[in-house]
Design a protein around this nucleic acid. Structure first.
Lengths: 258, 258
DNA sequence: CGTCGCCTTGAATCATGTCAACTACAGTGG
DNA sequence: CCACTGTAGTTGACATGATTCAAGGCGACG
């Protein structure tokens, strides 16, 4: 069964908090600071640009609920999706050094989100070393993700790319409690999947069907069920376990000095 | 003519300094701090791993002279080059949050470089807000570059990808004074170019020859001359001018409070 | 009841990959 | 000095994975 979309509220807290706890122990004051920073929570319907390619922007975007895509479009209409943004993701914490956006951020479901002003991000960095390190961690993870996508587009076959993407999303969703051990809900059209994997829509369709026929996944509308995780993982060509490293003890110690 | 490799010394300063000046005004004390941070300068011959995929590392790497590649290799030997690293590039300032490397950094010419310890990077971040912002700028630019590569691999044809890569390298080299208005020296084998563009060696060769035949570039060993910059740029499908944005005045003002 | 978005499938075509052969050149060791 | 070897570039012939074009199905919606 497709799982009901998880709709967090300002009261229950952003999925970001949970994700961060795997990286460092948030003190009560720190998670409180994050909560305040994310005020107020906003709503956006499907197909809304939260950031627009080529335009100036002054805020990072923190997604609490719903899906979005980060994408770039060429003059002739060709589009590349850089990554899927899901609850708990802070999109583009480096606003304050790069005012003009090199990509668009567009919702593909109704979304709950917050705007984090550039000045606030900067304050976080310079006033609170531990939370500043947290921003670096987010940025570093984003970069690792982009690297993965680059390898996928450059060196994997269509089937492998799909497997790679499915594996990545499954893993990221489980981390924020939005997917079970059997699979997940993925509200992306096949056209989006094509734009993310660098394939044509038709070929995405054929390849997904092949994954079904070989018993690796099953689909029902937008519910994806993983039937053979071992083979999926093998197809995805994952070298290193994508577990996020927790903060090193010596760094932690160094931060305590402040 | 191939241009003589520029060999900076500790006395003349790293090309990084020049690059940063376009982004923010470095005070004398700040460039001095950077100089000290980069002590001592080291040498590595061709084909040396400065960072190895999957291994722990404790330092970022600052390249002063020579070329390197950042790449990832799959179990079956397929390789993807994430980007070319050239003088003035600080490779992976986020060491201190991600101890295990997701890629390798390998020299492709003899290189002059410095190791910047994780602790030193962290200090830079928390003690000197202006220099910390500088690190963010470096990281943000790297990320923009990765995004460009992703679009290239996902949505550009072979000819366009080559044009894109040539344009990017030309632009980055000119920024650090290592390329003239006519072209540049590119010490990469066609196999490396293939691994960077996601193509096969044979097809890289054919496509480069085609670019020559159509009068867009000329090659002599590893010297690439740009004969028709307009057409090259058109092929490269560049949306936004890749000029690095200088630091915004309001951010600058905010930093002065510290 | 028509239209629209999305998914699905077949057939033809094309871009790119694979295989294989040849050239050039730089070492290297006898 | 020469034979030998390895790396890099080049080119042709052929194979194939992926795209394009075209058509039809199906559900949502006005």
């Amino acid at each position: 069964m497709p799982r009901k979309p998880h709709i967090p509220t300002a009261a229950t807290g952003s999925p970001l908090i949970g994700k961060l706890r795997r990286f460092l122990d948030l003190r009560p004051a720190e998670s409180e600071a994050l909560r305040v920073l994310a005020e107020p929570w906003r709503q956006a319907p499907t197909r809304t640009d939260l950031i627009t390619q080529g335009q100036n922007r002054t805020s990072a975007v923190l997604i609490h609920g719903g899906w979005a895509i980060r994408h770039r479009t060429l003059a002739d209409g060709r589009r590349q999706i850089l990554d899927f943004i899901l609850p708990g993701d802070l999109c583009d914490p480096s606003v304050f050094v790069t005012p003009v956006a090199g990509f668009s951020l567009t919702t593909i479901t109704p979304c709950t989100y917050s705007l984090i002003g550039a000045a606030a991000v900067l304050d976080l960095l310079s006033r609170s070393p531990r939370l500043g390190v947290m921003l670096w961690w987010i940025e570093a993870e984003e970069q690792a993700l982009l690297g993965d996508h680059l390898v996928a587009l450059g060196r994997l076959s269509a089937e492998e790319r799909l497997a790679h993407l499915l594996w990545e999303l499954w893993w990221r969703l489980r981390r924020v409690g939005l997917a079970g051990e059997d699979g997940f809900e993925w509200p992306a059209t096949q056209e989006m999947i094509a734009d993310a994997t660098g394939l044509s829509v038709v070929h995405v369709n054929r390849t997904l069907r092949r994954l079904e026929r070989s018993g690796i996944i099953r689909r029902l509308d937008h519910a994806y069920r993983i039937r053979n995780a071992r083979r999926l993982r093998a197809l995805a060509q994952l070298a290193n376990a994508p577990e996020p490293a927790p903060l090193q003890p010596d760094i932690e110690a160094r931060l305590r000095q402040h």
